[in-house]
């Protein structure tokens, strides 16, 4: 797994961003950027070059699923790995994310091992 890539972590809860960043640092990822909603995330994506997006679903302003659809509709990010990490765990949520082009899906609560396994799959 290439840990030199630039990772964008999107969640409206600072606690969750810190937990995810702690896990990513344990895995030796060094280039971490964060945003607290989909709108801010999209601004970051336009301004910078991001290699992996890890996003919550349920956020104010722009939700994670709307961010995913916007990302997949863009030339710049249509193939960028997108991991949804969310408490929205109902079947129709997973189905909607898959149809929108999510790379993988982690349901909160999660273990560090679950994040590692999903990243290992989507970054291979």
């Amino acid at each position: 797994m290439d840990t030199s890539i630039r990772v964008l972590v999107v969640d409206d809860f600072a606690t969750m961003r810190r937990i995810l960043k702690n896990i990513l640092k344990q895995l030796d990822f060094k280039n971490l950027v964060e945003a607290d909603d989909g709108t801010t995330a999209w601004e970051v994506l336009e301004e910078q070059s991001i290699d992996l997006i890890i996003s919550d679903w349920n956020m104010p302003k722009m939700s994670g699923i709307d961010l995913l659809k916007k990302v997949r509709a863009s030339d710049k990010y249509k193939k960028t790995p997108f991991l949804m990490v969310t408490a929205e765990a109902q079947k129709q949520n997973v189905l909607e994310a898959v149809q929108a082009g999510v790379s993988n899906y982690v349901v909160k609560p999660f273990t560090a091992e679950a994040i590692f396994e999903k990243l290992d799959k989507i970054l291979k």
Binding site: F13, T15, M16, N58, T86, A87, E88, A89, Q90, V107, K108, P109
Partner: peptide
């Protein structure tokens, strides 16, 4: 966030 997760799991 904990409440959010509890809600999600229960739902």
């Amino acid at each position: 966030e904990l409440t959010n997760m509890i809600s999600g799991q229960a739902r």
